[in-house]
């Protein structure tokens, strides 16, 4: 396979995976267990972490933006798009910076990503409402992001080690 084609294919596969994960997550929302608006496990973030570690920041960004746009087409609305994009972009920026940090593991990177995602969502809600009222949801969301970040951190550690890098697959 030629190199641009290979790149396109792996981005497409990962976008489809991220989309499927976020739809699946929406079917079993965490908010049933713990009623807190905006709370989710962040499974689609696994794909972002994988792309950051095994592909490149540019491809991670492409996958993230395509996933958000397609997700909005599937069942969301314009407001949901604004939320997932601000949260996702902020999380990607923070994780892209931290994944290069020599002292951290993917646990720390994922926790920071989850916290950044929640912060981005609250900022978007504050912008939509034109009020600082949504800020009251941030402290509980941040505490939850410690748990969800650790879970996705463990999952992405497994993912990055067990799933071979695309470059290693002979085609």
């Amino acid at each position: 396979m030629s190199s641009p084609l290979r790149r396109l294919t792996r981005c497409a596969v990962l976008t489809a995976l991220a989309l499927a994960l976020s739809v699946a997550e929406g079917m079993v929302p965490l908010t049933v267990l713990f009623p807190l608006p905006g709370l989710r496990l962040g499974l689609a973030n696994l794909v972002t972490t994988y792309a950051l570690c095994r592909l490149s920041g540019r491809e991670a960004l492409l996958i993230l933006v395509s996933r958000c746009l397609l997700g909005a087409l599937l069942g969301g609305n314009l407001m949901a798009l604004a939320f997932s994009l601000t949260g996702g972009l902020l999380a990607l920026a923070v994780m892209a910076a931290l994944v290069r940090c020599p002292f951290l593991s993917l646990f720390g990177v994922s926790i920071a990503g989850a916290a950044a995602h929640n912060t981005g969502q609250i900022l978007a809600a504050m912008a939509v409402l034109g009020s600082r009222a949504p800020l009251v949801y941030l402290p509980p969301l941040l505490l939850c992001s410690l748990v969800t970040g650790a879970v996705t951190g463990a999952a992405s550690t497994l993912l990055v080690h067990r799933v071979p890098s695309f470059a290693d697959i002979k085609s």
């Binding site: 951290l104 593991s105 646990f107 509980p140 992001s145």
Partner: peptide
């Protein structure tokens, strides 16, 4: 692309520190 974080399998002390920082931000808010 190689990243030191991706090669680790266990959380480091710095991960704990980062988690503590997030918790501290939550408590302060």
């Amino acid at each position: 692309m190689r990243s030191p974080a991706a090669d680790r399998r266990r959380p480091t002390l710095w991960d704990g520190l980062l988690a503590l920082l997030v918790a501290a931000a939550a408590v302060a808010l």
